[in-house]
Design a binder for these strands. Structure first.
Lengths: 228, 228
DNA sequence: TGTACATCAGTGAACGCGCGTTCACTGATGTAC
DNA sequence: TGTACATCAGTGAACGCGCGTTCACTGATGTAC
């Protein structure tokens, strides 16, 4: 019952072109410099045209954030799908590599999601949180597989404090009963990958480490050694 | 032979007041919104006065970055000095806790150093890199102590690839001959702490984890278990 | 098939605003005699 | 001690700029008869 787009809208794609120009601009000048007028200028259209597609600047930013999360989640899901036949540790490794590769290939997307928030922009959490959750889901699924296969070595790790157990149990409620260890390990593994990627993207690693992927691969090795 | 400040300058402290107003503003509105005019407004002075102390906006940002690094390095050094009598693993834990506590107490400083770069601002690396290095030094020193005591378990970790060895050796040259393993572990431990802190500061942890310090302490436990 | 009408994507001018930076200045403070 | 002068931190006006957003509009496209 949704009306089909008429010839005009389906041909012009202006909404997509606006989003893509916005990404270009963020890549060149950083997220906080995002400007509707600059986007219009780069597309050769009048600035107010944008208001036909996005109610204001914040709506455009929200669309970009959703865009970025969908892209990341897609990359993670693809990594899972390409390793359907593989053994769980190999799938975990594939997810990790895909995470870094996506981040390095789309640093603007990465910074928009994980970097410093844009001044005065308030993300609508009811929209962004589900997307963020979806991006983390493939990792949780693989960790779950590993646990089901009985090869999760939670006993090698320091014991959970009662407080931490309680927080994880609250989370478990909402995540369809995924076990404590699976939630905890997903988070901690994600954090280890994220730490390295964030330093690499932010250009904060010592310059001697000219090929950070080496560092990253070894961190994946150690994650597999330490938790499996 | 440097001239003593005359009564005027020593009384007004305007340079310090400008920096402090700048931090206030960043805390309220985020780093990219930093504005000389707004700083002047909040101090009740005329905007051009600022040019008596900072040659332009970028110079002010650089001063703030240096400020932040000095503050972080100071916090790390204090943590070391307070644990002079302790056993090395306890000192490592103290450094980790100090890192998180500093970050949580000064999220603006943290974001300015490690967050998304400010648009069009180019950090003068000859100034900022030494400061960043100094902040990492206490960690390297403690890891070195642990190695000297013979309790570093590098053999438990996945082997370094030749490429990674080469990069670490290049770094070793410049860092006064600190060993490969020490450099590598310092970096990787830093990255693990940084990953969690960055997610916490960015408010990207699941909301169920209402007390991220629990997560952080356990990560420190595991770091001690895994590398020592 | 032809014509009158409705729709609505895109326009151009205008609004009020805050920004970084420059400039010639002023007036209190500190100094030399 | 008193006076004339130099210094220079801080001023106020002005510059040119880009921003988000509003508004009444126009004109090509699609629709009804």
């Amino acid at each position: 019952l949704t009306p089909l787009p008429n010839r005009r809208t389906s041909k012009s794609n202006l909404d997509e072109r606006i989003l893509s120009a916005a990404w270009d601009q963020i890549a060149r000048e950083g997220a906080p410099a995002l400007s509707l007028r600059a986007i219009a200028r780069s597309l050769g259209i009048a600035a107010p045209s944008i208001y036909n597609y996005f109610s204001d600047r914040d709506a455009l930013v929200t669309a970009m954030i959703v865009d970025a999360f969908i892209s990341l989640a897609g990359a993670q899901e693809t990594a899972l799908n390409l390793t359907l036949a593989a053994v769980p540790p190999a799938r975990l490794r594939a997810l990790g590599m895909a995470y870094r590769e996506w981040s390095v290939a789309h640093p603007q997307h990465y910074q928009l999601i994980f970097g410093t928030p844009i001044p005065f922009y308030q993300a609508p959490e009811n929209i962004t949180i589900p997307q963020a959750t979806r991006a983390l889901l493939p990792l949780m699924r693989v960790i779950q597989e590993i646990q089901t296969a009985g090869s999760l070595r939670a006993e090698r790790l320091a014991p959970l404090s009662p407080k931490l157990e309680a927080m994880l149990d609250a989370w478990k409620e909402e995540s369809g009963g995924t076990g404590r260890e699976v939630l905890y390990l997903s988070l901690v593994i994600w954090s280890r990958l994220h730490g390295l990627v964030s330093l690499e993207i932010g250009n904060q690693l010592p310059h001697y480490l000219s090929d950070p992927s080496e560092l990253f691969q070894r961190e994946l090795d150690n994650i597999l050694l330490q938790y499996l």
